[in-house]
């Protein structure tokens, strides 16, 4: 028992030192408590090391001890899972609903294949019309069609309605672009370039192209990330063309020359 008290005192002293040291070093309170907790874990470990041997027992007593042990373990792990900060699924549900809404509509209508065929047919028709217009010497088809395909004009319409900033910002959040890119001083882990000055380097259509085909542009200084294909090549499947366009137009509005957004190099 004396040994237990001695080790407990040593553990509390070490925990106190860690608490004080982390406080002096500017750690937030929660980390100070965490380091104190580590000291307590070490104390328990060193107390257990010198515990006297447990005498063998069997039969009902052993069965009862085992069941009790399982109950303690189960309770400890359930409680352990509950003590950490919990992600609120409600934060995500709204996002998921918005992302999946167009796909849900396609699926629910049960016309995915039909829609794909229609899109392809429309695409063919557009190409045919463009070729005819070019032959007649008329200007090319709108840029948004080039970037986003057949359905792209929706965003342009939204932009005309003044909602583009809202839609673009919403897509930035929904697609979690902030995980890799810094914007307005927030987000990013140096996985991708900071984008506050992207509007001075790329047009909205070029940004849209980069989103749809990450290999189309390479940011200077991000050669390794480019080679490894760090930017996911999935947004052409995940996002509606109108959403891509809204995000691109919104980003093109960022023209903060004081931020060193790396120069994009055309690759394709």
């Amino acid at each position: 028992m004396g040994n237990v008290i001695k080790k407990s005192v040593v553990g509390i002293v070490i925990g106190g030192i860690l608490f004080g040291a982390t406080n002096a070093l500017g750690f937030p309170l929660v980390f100070q408590m965490l380091f104190f907790g580590y000291a307590m874990l070490g104390t328990v470990v060193f107390i257990i090391l010198d515990l006297p041997p447990l005498k063998p027992f069997g039969g009902i007593k052993a069965a009862g001890a085992l069941i009790g042990f399982y109950v303690i373990l189960s309770a400890a792990y359930v409680a352990g899972g509950a003590v950490w900060p919990q992600f609120d699924p409600e934060d995500e549900k709204g996002k998921i609903d918005k992302i999946l809404k167009p796909k849900r509509e396609h699926y629910e209508s049960g016309k995915v294949d039909v829609l794909l065929q229609r899109a392809k047919a429309l695409d063919e028709k557009t190409k045919e019309l463009t070729a005819r217009l070019q032959a007649l010497g008329v200007a090319q088809a709108p840029a948004d069609q080039k970037a986003g395909g057949g359905g792209a004009p929706t965003a342009t319409t939204a932009a005309a309605g003044g909602d583009v900033a809202k839609l673009g910002a919403e897509q930035w959040e929904l697609q979690e672009c902030y995980n890799c890119h810094k914007l307005n001083g927030e987000g990013g882990k140096k996985r991708g370039p900071e984008l506050d000055n992207i509007g001075n380097l790329l047009t909205a259509d070029e940004i849209a192209l980069k989103i749809l085909d990450p290999k189309s542009y390479k940011a200077e200084g991000f050669e390794k990330e480019y080679e490894k294909g760090k930017m996911p090549d999935k947004y052409k499947d995940l996002m509606e063309p109108s959403d891509v366009q809204a995000l691109a137009v919104w980003l093109a509005g960022y023209k903060n020359a004081s931020v060193n957004t790396p120069k994009p190099i055309k690759m394709k």
């Binding site: 792990y77 950490w84 849900r104």
Partner: peptide, 29 residues
């Protein structure tokens, strides 16, 4: 995430979200 097969087959069920660690701990236990 919110797919049955990632980026291929979306999960439209009501359970299509990331559960809390606490909820998961109950199930795992």
């Amino acid at each position: 995430k919110y797919f049955h097969a990632y980026n291929l087959l979306p999960d439209f069920t009501a359970e299509s979200f990331t559960p809390t660690l606490s909820y998961s701990a109950w199930w795992i236990t």
